[in-house]
Design a protein around this nucleic acid. Sequence first.
RNA 1: CGGGGAGUGGCGCAGCCCGGUAGCGCACAGCGUUUGGGACGCUGGGGUCGCAGGUUCGAAUCCUGUCUCCCCGACCA
Length: 519
Amino acid sequence: MPDEWVTTKAVTKHGGTTEPKGPVPAGTGPFHSQIRRPGGDMDESVDEQIEDRSDWYIRTVLSAELADYTPVRGSIAIRPYGYAIWENIQADVDRELKATGHKNASFPLFIPMSFMRREAEHVEGFAPELAVVTHGGGQKLAEELVVRPTSETIIYDCYRKWIKSYRDLPVLINQWGNAVRWEMRTRPFLRGMEFLWQEGHTAHETFAEADAEARLILDIYVRFIQEVLAIPVVPGRKSEREKFAGAEITYTMESMMRDGRALQMGTSHNLGQNFGRAFDVRFLDRDGEQKFPWSTSWAVSTRLIGALVLVHGDDKGLILPPRIAPFQVVIVPIWRKDEERATVEAFVSQVEAELQAAGLRLEIDRRDTVTPGFKFNDWELRGVPVRLEIGPRDVAANQVTAARRDTREKQAIGLAGLAAELHSLLEDVQSTMAARAREFADTHTQSVSGFAELAAGLEASPGFYWINWCGDPVCEDRLMELKASIRALPMDESAAGAGGACTVCGKDGKTRALVAKAY
RNA sequence: CGGGGAGUGGCGCAGCCCGGUAGCGCACAGCGUUUGGGACGCUGGGGUCGCAGGUUCGAAUCCUGUCUCCCCGACCA
């Protein structure tokens, strides 16, 4: 289905309307999804219902029980299954950050309004999306507090006290927490008023050191997203217009969703001395001079969960890469008579013990209130990479029937060496998913040299388009006519190559630029 | 924040125009038969109709306000 989204969208846009609308909140129990069948009509094809990509996304997130809506606009509840994905993301990223010398800490949720104003571009950038606390303890506050949209300001106020000498540098601190931005338009995981993330804030002696840090983090992110989430990314820099409010350089990672639109997967900023200067953080350098430290900040958020859904999902629901899936394997026992049940359950317990010992993340669906067929669909909806069907026939043959979620192929696997077989099957699922996503991104990435060509391309086949750009913001703004924007510039300007006349205005091109419609 | 659509048992909807005290399917509970791709029968429980005002003898239904969700736009590291 994913490949059809592009065309489906166009069809919908030019007249076709979809009928089933509205949120489809999830089932009643942790494992009792009943969505994707509006009206309860099981004969109705899911494919026919999911004509609208946006609607598909919401339905999938709700019915896989990743999250649910709350009475507060733009604020979702992340349900256990969704949070389990986040915990796996955290574990991986946290391990990488620790391995590169970073330490975790925690800073206040509330930030004095005056702090936000210290850095001119910073406050200008964030002013429209601040949530402001005006009262506390029944009293009007002498100074308003903002709920952190990001923590640079409060952290640099601390760094002023913590950094006195070059011997105190570098400071390599990360924080796992939440942030609040008053968004006008919200979508679960992709954009919301409150989201969970990690934000790293480092301080260094030199620009070069800070820049190396920002790039190191970007590399860590890229590796994680590509190797663990199986999502290809394009690393690059943001244009002046798109960069972080208060940064000198913003490095970004852009990924292509199945509808051809770009999603910013995370950013890493070289903040120069902007915040050091604004908060008067000074250190005595080796040369005896007082200097402002050079700093960075970087973040990835729960938006990555949205990316997993949008990149890998299909008409049956989620498909999770084995390396991040809360459950890598789910076992569905099958029997008809009580005698069969006894032997099957004994066999399942044996398999369970072996796979548990092999370190697989495993779930046994022992519900006897629903049929095996129901369970198959249920776990496919949740994207479990591999399902083991174990019934009397399997017991008799001393095997299990394995069904992989990504290709929906089934195969029998003998009990001998089962764990090893599953490990390699999971690896194959992981690499197949990565290759599939890579192929989609590659086949929807093109180079164009003329504005008309770009416009026609974006209209006919949404995706990534490399253009030549003169660097003039006016040309960048014209892309808005196409509902597109510059998502990234090549990492290194020098290596970018001028590639020819600016795709927009025809003047000398200074750099290549990646253009796409964005989430 | 502008334009459009929608909120009625857990979910999907009907009822609203022409006010008279709420209905259907699925889900849920019990029992029985079932179980290798979303099982079936019987019985049963569950709803201050998003919220707040107003009109009326009487409001799911008419009026006003407000909140949330969806779509389009503007905005958005």
